[in-house]
Design a protein around this nucleic acid. Structure first.
Length: 120
DNA sequence: AGATTGACTGCAT
DNA sequence: CATGCAGCCAATC
């Protein structure tokens, strides 16, 4: 049979699958996704996002950096679009353009629902 | 095969 | 809390 799929492709598929599990109004970090996927660094997650075709159904806008901020893109105004999409979902940014990960952070794939007592 | 870049992160200053 | 530097893995030249 043909040779097995490249590790990179499987890795990308994993990343996309996890990002798809992030519920609206929540955000995750590159490092968080990387750890959930395993054997993957945050850079690969960012790279996967950049290599992802538009319209793939992946809520890429819900992935932020470890500081809870929208990462600056090398090209285009994608970062602006990302922030707008998140605000539209109810994610609030402070004056410095940062999101409170303690509040809007995605708990994980096993807790896709926010806790009812999530008030600190 | 070596060097450079990239939607990153953690630690030191 | 802002800035700087090293580590990180894959893609591109």
């Amino acid at each position: 049979m043909t040779r097995p799929p490249n590790r990179s492709e499987a890795l990308y598929a994993r990343i996309y699958a996890l990002v798809k599990q992030i519920p609206p109004g929540r955000v995750a970090t590159y490092g968080q996704i990387a750890r959930l996927v395993g054997r993957c660094s945050a850079r690969q997650v960012g790279y996967a996002m950049a290599a992802m075709p538009s319209g793939s159904g992946v809520p890429w806008q819900r992935v932020l950096n470890s500081r809870g901020e929208v990462s600056r893109r090398s090209q285009g105004q994608g970062d602006r679009t990302q922030r707008r999409l998140l605000e539209m979902e109810g994610v609030r940014f402070d004056d410095r353009g940062r999101v409170n990960l303690r509040e809007a952070g995605w708990p994980g794939p096993d807790a896709d629902e926010p806790d009812p007592f999530g008030d600190l």
